[in-house]
Design a binder for these strands. Structure first.
Lengths: 204, 204
DNA sequence: ATAATAGTTGACCGTCTAGTCCACTATGTT
DNA sequence: AACATAGTGGACTAGACGGTCAACTATTAT
């Protein structure tokens, strides 16, 4: 009973967009409310703070993304092809983002995590947990590639961390330089890091 | 004539520390002035805005760092050793930072660049120019390693960009996770990316 | 010594911000 | 129809914020 509302989802959409296109620090509750078309009274009805809203919004957005990543990293896809497809996916997403906002915006977890990690502990933990999930996809692909004799990586978990560092670094470079072309080097660099000799997989 | 002052350098020191340990967005002019022990009137006597102060501070700090990097990347040092030493240098600096602030703080250019790139154009350009200089050190080392037959990299400029993405990605991971150990994988990952077969250079 | 000047100080202003409060409204349930 | 209740609106506060200003002070060249 009582009335129903879509204010919660509108607030979550708004905060993600504002943080991603700008930054966490410059995104105020007033801005979020304006963008969402929701009054501040309603904001505080649903959330305690900007940090809590951001954490919930990040989580919801991650639940959506998981579906796509489960497809890309499907166990029935050859392991190196998963990584190749993942790079293509990132390139495609950033391309759409650039078409929409006129800018490459990179990885929201990295940008936000880097900004708030010394200040917002709960938010930071949420980001860390999402990154841990991403790590699992990559580690599993590396393990499977090892088993298939496509790779010879001694410590897949460590290598997955190195691979993520590279991928995230490229995404951040692309954001800072606002240059989509940077991401073209994603797959080649990743395979070079993994120690794959020659890559004849399809390019983006 | 007139009196002399160290307020300018105190402000520049303060803003760098506040941005690095926190973020650009949450660093206010009042905070900067408090930390520097300088009144706001003096702030506006020397600078027009937080962005201008940050840009000048970044530049000054870069001029200091150049001296160290010129040593590390000296042309008389074997090229792969330069890269090895550069990784060790980064590890050492972050270790000192962690001892001082209780946190790994990563690369200031990346954190700040990532945060302000959509909002502060002048600052963003300054950051970009510093990153371009860093790129030159690495590209030159790769070129020299090629010439010495230690590497066989077809496009040193592109490879330098990939290497920087990896290094910056690791530094950002280390900041977000507040984990110094992450940086242990810096040199091995870098050499793997470059395609060096076996690394028997000294470890950190 | 003193005048010119580089730098300092604190009071001040308007605006933005996080957060509160409560009367009000729409909706599902009975 | 009407009641309980989920959600809304908007006015309000206190403090933080960026920015200004004019009076003041220390230094140094002459």
């Amino acid at each position: 009973m009582g009335r129903v509302s879509d204010a919660k989802v509108k607030l979550m959409d708004a905060v993600l967009e504002l943080i991603w296109t700008g930054s966490y620090g410059t995104t105020t509750i007033d801005h979020i409310c304006d963008k969402a078309g929701v009054k501040k009274g309603s904001f505080y009805y649903f959330f305690d703070s900007k940090a809590q809203l951001a954490a919930e919004a990040l989580d919801a957005s991650w639940q959506d993304r998981r579906v796509e990543l489960d497809q890309i990293f499907s166990a029935i896809v050859p392991p190196l092809e998963r990584l190749q497809k993942y790079c293509e996916f990132n390139y495609r997403v950033q391309g759409e983002i650039k078409a929409q906002y006129g800018r490459v915006l990179g990885c929201p977890q990295v940008s936000l995590g880097c900004e708030v990690c010394t200040q917002e502990d709960a938010l930071q933990k949420k980001i860390q947990s999402i990154m841990d999930y991403k790590h699992k996809y990559i580690e599993s692909a590396i393990r499977d590639a090892n088993a298939a004799g496509l790779l010879n990586v001694s410590d897949p978990a460590k290598m997955a961390r190195m691979a993520m560092a590279y991928l995230q670094g490229l995404m951040t470079q692309a954001r800072i330089q606002n240059n989509l072309e940077t991401l073209r080097e994603m797959a080649p660099g990743l395979f070079s890091l993994l120690g794959v000799k020659e890559t004849e997989t399809t390019t983006v």
